[in-house]
């Protein structure tokens, strides 16, 4: 039914002569392995260097538990972001959702005396609702997720400032709320355990359920997924709701840990989250976005930060290095995937 059979063959890299087209698999395998190992070896080297330079403080239990505490919020965020990137979309609004939810949960308790559980529920509903709105704009509205989430994030930050008057809130925060994160269970803060549980749940959803497989199919080739009988819209909306819900949970844990709310303090998570997820993809055997990979990415970056802090390096060094690492991670991840396809 088409006369362009020959041209389309050419475009597709000549499927008629498949033996010649792909690079020899062994070479590709090796190159992909190198990409992967450079992330892992980089980590081991980094740990070794810090351990040699700060033998008394770096390789200690307190560094490790400290790192886990710090990892809690970023880990929840990267789990959500992994869903988004695996589905082939972008989200620049999840940190804004984190900020607004944090403001909402604390205001409801301290100014309106809502019970803790109800306030938390309300924050989650708010976050999920925002995710749903973004998802609908991207799918039904057919808008580019990059621009939509950029716009939404500005709206949400505006709402956050309006709600909290751009003021720190610390009075009248119930103890039962701060206990949610701060209580210790088996030597670790409860927030760390909650994070672990959510990582496991996210991993199961993305890697072992039908929804997860649909997400990766949509991210792999949305047209093919649609024609193969996947509801692409529903899959994309689910991803935006998941990332927003995780951001809402992160907001609860963050305010609970701090016992207070600081205005407009969530934007810093954005770049780091992307850096972590791409580092994780570069380190993953498949070159794809995985929950475990992303969590490893968070640990990688936090280890770097912790080490630099212990070495008394100025703050700009860590910012600069993180930008560099994101650039390298994106390149490595792209290479890993390209070679995987060859």
């Amino acid at each position: 039914m088409s006369t362009n059979t020959t041209t389309s063959q050419n475009r597709q890299g000549d499927p008629g002569a498949p033996e010649k087209a792909p690079a020899p698999p062994r070479v590709a395998h090796l190159a992909q392995g190198l990409t992967r190992w450079s992330v892992l070896i980089g980590y081991v080297l980094m740990v070794a260097i810090f351990a040699i330079l700060r033998p008394d403080t770096f390789l200690t239990i307190s560094t490790a538990t400290n790192l886990l505490d710090q990892a809690t919020i970023p880990t929840l965020l990267v789990c959500g972001l992994t869903f988004i990137l695996a589905s082939g979309e972008f989200d620049l609004s999840f940190t804004a959702v984190l900020g607004l939810s944090a403001g909402a949960v604390i205001i409801l308790m301290s100014k309106h005396d809502w019970p803790v559980a109800l306030a938390c529920m309300a924050a989650l509903v708010l976050a999920g609702g925002l995710g749903l709105i973004v998802g609908l704009l991207v799918t039904v509205g057919r808008a580019s997720s990059f621009i939509v989430t950029l716009a939404v994030s500005s709206v949400v930050v505006g709402l956050e400032l309006a709600l909290t008057d751009n003021k720190t809130i610390f009075e009248n925060v119930p103890i039962s709320f701060t206990n949610v994160a701060q209580q210790e269970v088996l030597g670790l803060h409860q927030s760390v355990w909650i994070m672990v549980i959510l990582v496991v749940i996210s991993g199961i959803i993305l890697h072992a359920t039908r929804l997860g497989r649909h997400i990766s199919a949509v991210g792999g080739n949305a047209t093919a997924a649609f024609l193969a009988g996947i509801s692409v819209r529903r899959v994309r909306i689910s991803c935006f709701v998941i990332v927003a819900l995780l951001a809402g949970l992160a907001a609860i844990l963050r305010t609970s840990t701090a016992g207070s709310y600081f205005p407009n303090s969530s934007a810093g998570f954005l770049l780091n989250s992307y850096a972590a997820v791409f580092l994780g993809a570069a380190a993953a055997r498949s070159g794809r976005f995985t929950i475990l990979g992303s969590v490893f990415g968070v640990v990688w970056l936090l280890t770097l930060q912790t080490g630099l802090t212990q070495l008394n390096q100025p703050a700009w060094a860590s910012t600069l290095l993180q930008g560099l690492i994101l650039s390298i991670a994106v390149l490595l991840a792209a290479r890993g995937r390209r070679e995987g396809e060859a």
Binding site: Q12, P15, S216, G220, N221, A224, L227, R337, E341
Partner: peptide
């Protein structure tokens, strides 16, 4: 069940 034409709209080459 549908299988539609050019491989650009049927396959997930990197999967």
């Amino acid at each position: 069940c549908y299988l539609g034409g050019e491989r650009t709209s049927t396959t997930f080459p990197g999967h």
